[in-house]
């Protein structure tokens, strides 16, 4: 179900969005002051009903982006607009009114739930806060309907979170998030804590509910397989910036940026067989406190050229595709995958 991008304004826009934190590094008497650039100037749009997948390694800024979108933290620069208006961050009345329309699903369902409340009460909680117009009976009926929608049995209504399995708990979280018919779901690693067999249940559930209710989602995951399954569009982050964007098929089957190429080739798959060719990057992911100058990927990039050390490649867009790499430009215009030398590829079948 691809949303019609031309027909409406995006539901969500981020422009020049950044979040920096002041930190102290070891060194000197009091330590050295430095800036951690968790998110460092990102632009993206999300259409109504669209799912944008956000991928990247730990510390690249995925979760900070989620918090910025939800108004949990204030941007250091730039802004997020939801349905045309800036997202407020003061947790006041404006923010609460907006929060009815955007909801969050976290990685750890147990942490997101109240241990002392039966699950039906937790599912009805947003209704109690935001829909005082509903009678108690109506709220109960709506909670029962939500439980059914996420595949929980009526007899489980009085259960407490610890009496449920991990997958059932995540269903409770999803039911609660959908209670107010949100237009946007922010999902931060929603299935990472679940076993494969349960993960598939939850992914299918999200797909079905989306088909029925049409929510848009920012879907954050380190697992490329999961993102491909869920997303209409994928953005790849590295050190606080978006380095590539496109449809899942484009990004995962014909990655342009050297980092995306490495990430895709490193994703283990039981269908890929044994000892397949893989791009193995040298070095550790760099520290966001001291992001390298120029292209921040250059110390690990197998094809970096002199220019990469000084000149930051801008994120260039062509239609639905975007990439930030000096070498991902095709000779006749447009994009082409940055050419990786065969020396960067290891583990090929003997």
């Amino acid at each position: 179900m691809s949303p019609d991008l031309a027909s409406s304004e995006p539901l969500l826009t981020a422009r020049g969005l950044a979040r920096h934190y002041g930190v102290r590094l070891p060194g000197g008497l009091m330590g050295r002051r430095a800036t951690l650039k968790a998110v460092d100037g990102i632009d993206f749009d999300l259409a109504r009903g669209e799912i944008l997948g956000l991928v990247g390694e730990s510390g690249c800024g995925k979760s900070t982006t989620a918090k910025l979108v939800l108004g949990h933290v204030a941007p250091s620069a730039g802004e997020v607009r939801f349905d045309g208006a800036p997202v407020p961050v003061d947790h006041g009345g404006d923010w609460r009114r907006l929060r009815r329309r955007m909801q969050m699903i976290y990685q750890d369902p147990l942490g997101a739930l109240d241990r002392r409340l039966p699950i039906a009460a937790q599912i009805a909680e947003p209704l109690q806060i935001h829909r005082p117009d509903l009678s108690r009976a109506d709220r109960g009926a709506r909670a029962a309907e939500l439980m059914r929608a996420v595949g929980l049995r009526p007899d489980q209504a009085a259960r407490y979170p610890h009496e449920l399995s991990g997958g059932q708990r995540q269903r409770v979280v999803i039911a609660r998030a959908l209670a107010l018919d949100p237009e946007l779901l922010v999902c931060d690693e929603p299935v990472s804590a679940l076993d494969v067999s349960v993960q598939a249940q939850v992914l299918n559930l999200l797909e079905d509910l989306r088909a029925r209710t049409g929510f848009a989602a920012l879907f954050i995951s380190h697992d490329l397989k999961v993102v491909r399954q869920m997303a209409d569009r994928v953005a790849v982050m590295y050190l606080g910036r978006i380095v590539e964007e496109g449809s899942p098929e484009e990004v995962l089957h014909r990655p342009l940026h050297p980092y995306t190429q490495a990430l895709v080739s490193a994703a283990p798959s039981p269908h890929a067989g044994r000892r397949r060719a893989r791009i193995v990057l040298r070095g550790d992911p760099p520290n966001p406190v001291e992001a390298p100058a120029g292209c921040s990927f250059h110390p690990r990039c197998p094809v970096a050229v002199a220019r990469c050390r000084t000149e930051r490649p801008p994120l260039l867009r062509e239609g639905r595709r975007a990439v930030a790499c000096h070498l991902a430009q095709a000779a006749g215009g447009g994009f082409a995958p940055a050419p990786l030398p065969s020396a960067a590829v290891s583990g090929a079948a003997a």
Binding site: G167, V196, S197, A200, L203, N204, E207, Q229, A267
Partner: peptide, 18 residues
């Protein structure tokens, strides 16, 4: 039940229960 990067995208098969 495992999604994949390659091949046609398909609906995941699930194992019911836990």
């Amino acid at each position: 039940a495992l999604p994949d990067i390659e091949g046609p995208k398909r609906r995941l098969e699930t194992i019911p229960g836990s």
